[in-house]
């Protein structure tokens, strides 16, 4: 085979890996169609979109860079409180709050990134858990700013772009959250398929070889941790703005654990894992809450245990088989 041929094949292969698969369009069309199909479920759909964004953020570090975290709620909370405070004290414009919320969380991610660069999985889990609890404690003790246990009340959001007003049924909320999710998803998709994204996968797969190939590991990890924090901040800001309320619950440990479960359900390391997981998780939660609202936590726990003990292989095997049947070729999401 000639060199030119091979060069063309290499390029073709690289293009194919990043191209949009038809099934991906279906996902987004369905998400948009839900707006019309389930007009009574828009509040739930809004929650799904926000959780999906939060899980996408976690996937960026867990699935693509191999950094495990048990304290991701710290960034969700940072974004939520920042957006809430901006709305209360500065401006009611949602987009301004969203951007500043992302920036604040990103900054927190950048500042704390040196702490997760060192050590193994175990120390990372402990350190992130510690940081998460630290943020909760901080929000609790800064009652003059955060409202303490009462939370931030009386948030009134302005119109998005001066046009779309938030309503009681979640119409604007879902459209807003879905749009933000989509835009950030497209950005994340671009990033994971870039040379930078490839180097993250290298670090996740084999740090020794990555370092021996010239990848400056600490810088790359710090960068993706910051990015992930900013994404979580966006999810927090959306949460604060669409519910017009922020409480200590956004920083609670169960948030970090839930989003981990979402990612485990959907599968880490492909960008749709967070979306699939969030939909399954929220629908399950909704369904279980319908007949046993108080003991939802028990079922979450049971799912976690069952998943890790073997249910995951069964579920993901099923999903893979389904995807293989539908598409007939390797998905472009990984």
């Amino acid at each position: 085979m000639s060199t030119a041929d091979l060069t063309a094949r290499v390029r073709g292969s690289l293009v194919l890996a990043r191209k949009w698969h038809p099934a991906e369009f279906v996902v987004w069309v369905m998400a948009a169609a839900a707006f019309v199909l389930f007009p009574r479920q828009l509040l739930l759909l809004n929650e799904i979109a926000i959780l999906a964004l939060f899980a996408l953020s976690l996937d960026l570090i867990v699935g693509y860079a191999g950094i495990v975290s048990l304290g991701h709620a710290a960034f969700l909370g940072m974004g939520a409180y920042t957006a809430g405070l901006i709305a209360l004290h500065v401006t009611a414009d949602p987009l301004v709050g969203l951007v500043i919320g992302m920036a604040a969380s990103g900054l927190l991610g950048l500042v704390t990134s040196p702490l997760v660069l060192k050590g193994n999985d175990l120390t990372r889990l402990m350190v992130t858990l510690g940081i998460g609890l630290l943020m909760l404690e901080l929000a609790n003790s800064l009652g003059w700013l955060t409202g303490g246990a009462d939370g931030l009340q009386g948030i009134a959001m302005g119109k998005i772009l001066g046009i779309f007003e938030f309503d009681l049924f979640g119409k604007t909320a879902y459209a807003y959250s879905l749009t933000v999710l989509f835009l950030l998803f497209v950005l994340a998709r671009r990033i994971v398929h870039s040379p930078f994204g490839l180097s993250l996968r290298a670090v996740r797969d084999n740090p020794l070889r990555a370092a021996s190939s010239g990848v400056p590991i600490p810088w790359r990890l710090a960068a993706v941790y910051t990015l992930s924090a900013a994404y979580a901040g966006a999810a927090g800001a959306l949460l604060a703005q669409t519910t017009q309320f922020v409480s200590l619950d956004v920083l609670d440990f169960h948030r970090s654990a839930d989003v981990m479960l979402v990612l485990i359900i959907g599968g880490a390391g492909w960008l749709y894992g967070g979306i699939v997981g969030a939909a399954v998780f929220k629908l399950l939660q909704d369904w279980i809450a319908w007949f046993t609202p108080q003991y939802w936590q028990f079922w979450i726990g049971l799912f976690l245990v069952a998943f890790v003990l073997g249910g995951r292989e069964i579920l993901h095997g099923g999903i893979r088989a389904l995807v293989a049947r539908v598409s007939g070729r390797r998905g472009g999401g990984s």
Binding site: R11, L14, V15, A17, R18, R190, I191, H193, S194, P195, F196, G197, L198, S199, S213, G214, V215, P216, W219, R220, A223, L227
Partner: peptide, 15 residues
């Protein structure tokens, strides 16, 4: 890509 100094570019395309 690391040798060519591309690895730090999050918005670039490999191809």
């Amino acid at each position: 890509s690391e040798r060519l100094g591309e690895g730090g570019r999050p918005l670039a395309r490999l191809d």
